[in-house]
Simulated scan of single mutants.
Amino acid sequence: MKITDRVLRSFRVARTYKKSPQKINCVDYSPNGEHAISSSDDDCIVLYDIREGTETSVLYSKKYGVDLIRYAHQDSQTVIYSSNKLDDTIRYLSLTDNRYIRYFPGHTARVTALSMSPVDQAFISGSLDETIRIWDLRAPTCQGLTNPLGKPVCSFDPEGLIFAAGVESQAVKLYDLRAFDKGPFGCFKTRFNRSCDWTGLKFSSDGKMILISTNGGMIRVLNAFNGSVLHTFSGYNNSQGVSLEACFTPDSQFVMIGSEDGRVHVWSTESGMKVAVLDGKHSGPINTLQFNPRYMTFASACKNMMFWLPCPDDM
């Protein structure tokens, strides 16, 4: 099924999971789209089977806490995650036996970005210590470090050859993974017309666009090659300055973001027009939002986790 305006407007909540007394802070889909995982502020890691529509298990990280979480490369049985208690070490966890495979120490402040390479076992992390570190799942030591001269959010491009860093909420710097020590090969400055912090950065799946999320009431889509502003999207509620995650659909044709009032807003990246506002009756701000890379479903979360499906009767 092709993702269209009409299909997006037909999405309805198919399942709701009410497990967490505190907010869910991160959601990720496995590369094959058959599994999902969430982390929450009460130290829980919850696993979901997407095809069966079931919650499969709950793991805990009581000692370290759990913040950002990502599936490891092409693997639905292992994850990496950052901590929000004790220290800022990144941990590599086996989901099958709840065992730590490896620790990645080095950051000295909260990790604000975690991005797995789409092509191999490398990953990058950005931190409030104003560094971006490059890692390999097979080695505990940092494989490289760059100082982007400010607090970064960062992400790999779809080919895993370059990564982008949003620095100090005012510039996007592009790095060649094979020559990152030479500094960025490109830098785009883009200022928002209202005060806000950049909270996330993502490439579209076709590699042509970069999406910047903020804790203000607007997000922005840039041309990934020259940094020109393609769209600035606003008109959703975020008066409290919540860090709201935005995402592209897998075909790069739409951008989605949750809002403070619990609704999901969708825009076309071609026309720049808003095409849908979806109300799943979330009880609070939608902190995290992800579209499945393989199947026609997406997840949104506040304290509750919701999985959405298109409704044929509304198409």
Rank of each mutant, 00 (worst) to 15 (best):
K202M: 03
A299L: 15
I134D: 07
G284V: 00
I90Q: 03
Y103P: 03
S205D: 10
S10V: 05
E34S: 05
S268K: 05
S169F: 06
T146E: 11
F203Q: 01
P140V: 14
Y29H: 13
D43M: 01
N193I: 03
C196R: 07
S82C: 11
E52A: 12
S271C: 00
E130L: 04
V46E: 04
G227L: 08
K23C: 08
F254I: 07
N84C: 07
L93A: 07
V277Q: 07
S195H: 01
F233P: 01
P21M: 10
T269P: 07
D313P: 02
K63V: 04
S252W: 11
S195N: 01
Y175N: 04
S204C: 05
V264C: 12
P250Y: 09
V79E: 01
S127T: 01
N193S: 05
R110H: 06
V66Q: 04
K173G: 01
D43C: 07
L128D: 14
Q253W: 01
C26Q: 10
K2F: 10
Q74R: 12
E159V: 13
H107Y: 04
L309R: 11
F291T: 00
K151G: 00
M1A: 14
V13H: 06
S268E: 06
S83W: 02
S228R: 11
G183P: 00
L59I: 14
Y92K: 15
